[in-house]
Design a protein around this nucleic acid. Structure first.
Length: 136
DNA sequence: CGACTTTGACCGGCGC
DNA sequence: GCGCCGGTCAAAGTCG
């Protein structure tokens, strides 16, 4: 695979530094029994990578929208360092594409917080993620 | 058959 | 200048 060394990725070395899209950090409470590989939040996500960071001893998973790969929407899931039973999902971009199956929305969302640069305050609400997105 | 998942390796950017 | 980290991609295998 010589090409792998040359072609590799980054076809566009000059990627316009688009301002980070809307970043939404959602705290999802899950149990050891619900450690499914894919978090069903109403969309289809494809895991394209997993890496362990120093911030968290737990492995962080990277997901990409598999239903609309053309959309610049990405998702990062990482376990909470304090609460291993809590999953922190970071959504990058907006979900402007149609839902594959709205009836599939049945996620145990416990706390939904919006990433605030000043201070990360976790709201004590449990609205459907789709509802928050659809409301956009 | 098709789709999805998993793992490893590589690169770029930043800091000191 | 060098080292380190984070992030992404590719390929292969498996399952329904």
């Amino acid at each position: 695979m010589i090409q792998k060394s040359i072609l590799k990725k980054h076809a566009s070395p000059k990627r316009p530094r688009e301002i980070t899209t809307n970043i939404s950090t959602v705290c999802v409470k899950t149990t050891s029994s619900d450690q499914t590989s894919v978090v069903k939040d109403g969309y289809h996500w494809r895991k394209y990578g997993q890496k362990v960071t120093r911030d968290n001893p737990s492995p962080r998973a990277y997901y990409k929208c598999s239903f609309a790969p053309t959309f610049p929407v990405k998702k990062k899931v990482q376990r909470s360092a304090k609460d291993p039973s809590v999953l922190v999902a970071t959504y990058e971009g907006e979900h402007n594409h149609p839902h594959p199956s709205q009836a599939e929305i049945k996620v145990p969302l416990v706390n939904q917080a919006r990433f605030s640069r000043t201070n990360d305050v976790f709201l004590d609400q449990n609205p459907s993620f789709a509802a928050a997105v659809a409301a956009t």
